[in-house]
Amino acid sequence: MALEDKYKQLTDAATGAGIADLEVREQDGVLYVDGTAPDGAVKDQLWDIYNQIDPNFTSGDLVLNVNVAADAAVTHAKVITESSNLNIRKGPGTDQPIVGKAAHGEVITLVNRSNDLWWLVRTNDGEEGYCYAQYLEPQA
């Protein structure tokens, strides 16, 4: 219960922001907050609150698992790497061979997002493969 109090501001914000399927559970000294955010801004807002309550995330007593809802109507994504090209791989995993690259800032086609971590994409040159989802920003 103490952890729920510590992160009350966060869970209240999650409820207020309309996080879908919100679950708050405490188990073995760690609070698990799971849910789906309507958009990236809400997810960022929750992470900002987390960072305020536990600066630099050093306590190790919260696992904030909030994904952004995948909108089926979205078919394209922008490559949001720091500056480099994004690897496109044969399968989902960095142990998979690289089959192509997408340029920083390029907008590519989303083929399948059933895997949360690795999305199947197609570049404008027709190369198809898996990219790390964190480097892709769905385009409305």
């Binding site: 995330f57 190790g60 696992v63 698992n65 949360d116 971590l117």
Partner: peptide, 21 residues
């Protein structure tokens, strides 16, 4: 500092028991 939040976000969706930072 700017990268820490990105790293934590990536790790938190992987269903870990705990992240000891």
């Amino acid at each position: 500092k700017t990268s820490l939040i990105k790293l934590m976000q990536r790790l938190s969706v992987l269903k870990p028991k705990k992240i000891d930072n």
